[in-house]
């Protein structure tokens, strides 16, 4: 499962997993919010895996996830978690340790997936 995150040899330096419950409205909001933030701030430099805890409870167990939605930043270290529907963009970026300005300066070659 973890291997699949690196498929295609892309320059995915952000590896993200989002745990949600089924297809609840909150899950859909969270996924939409996260995709928007990633497109804006991490264009092409991320892998996102969405996990439904109802289908894969063991993954939630392994990661000791309690709340849904929970966003886990696997890479780069350190491990960080953001819980909630990710509606507060600033907090999401804070949780992922992404600074928009610094990002724009340091990475001039964004790649689309």
């Amino acid at each position: 499962m973890v291997g699949s995150l690196f498929q295609g040899g892309s320059l995915a330096n952000y590896v993200l997993r989002l745990f949600v419950t089924g297809t609840s409205p909150r899950a859909e909001v969270a996924v939409a919010n996260l995709r928007r933030i990633c497109e804006q701030e991490l264009q092409g430099r991320y892998e996102l895996q969405v996990i439904d805890v109802l289908e894969q409870p063991q993954l939630a167990e392994d990661e000791k996830v309690l709340a849904t939605p929970t966003l886990i930043k696997q890479l780069p270290p350190p491990l960080r978690r953001v819980i909630g529907d990710l509606s507060d963009k600033d907090k999401v970026l804070l949780g992922l340790e992404v600074r928009p300005a610094a990002l724009a300066d340091s990475d001039p070659k964004p790649k689309k997936k």
Partner: peptide
């Protein structure tokens, strides 16, 4: 204690319940 958690918006304990 090693994992920092930031809360952003509404959540539930669906994962816990599923576990």
């Amino acid at each position: 204690p090693h994992i920092e958690i930031v809360e952003s918006g509404g959540f539930d304990l669906g994962a816990l319940l599923a576990r």
